[in-house]
């Protein structure tokens, strides 16, 4: 399942999408949990009883601000979360 967390507002689309099928047998040892300096990820049991990563409720409406430190306006080469998630489950829309 692709789970998209985030929102769209006047300034743009801010979504982090997680390909949860890749989380089921995570080959990265749940690296997202420790890689994110804002500790935005958590592991939940989803509706189909799979253990997968998700973005914490508290961050879902403020991604643009929460991720700002990792995404300087001058550009960035890589993000801690996407780099740590070697199975390639994570994508940012902005």
């Amino acid at each position: 399942m692709i789970a998209n967390y985030g929102y769209k507002d006047g300034s743009g689309d801010y979504y982090i999408s997680i390909d949860t099928d890749r989380c089921i047998d995570c080959a990265a040892g749940r690296a997202c949990l420790t890689a994110c300096p804002k500790e935005m990820f958590e592991i939940i049991t989803d509706d189909y009883d799979d253990e997968v990563a998700c973005i914490k409720q508290a961050n879902r409406r403020s991604l643009a601000y929460d991720c700002a430190d990792c995404k300087p306006s001058g550009g960035y080469a890589s993000l801690p979360c996407t780099t740590a998630c070697t199975p390639g489950a994570l994508k940012h829309s902005w």
């Binding site: 399942m1 692709i2 789970a3 998209n4 929102y7 769209k8 507002d9 979504y15 189909y48 409406r61």
Partner: peptide
Amino acid sequence: GKVTNFLMNDKC
């Protein structure tokens, strides 16, 4: 009826 992709907007 199993979800394969979703997105939710509850910001406004």
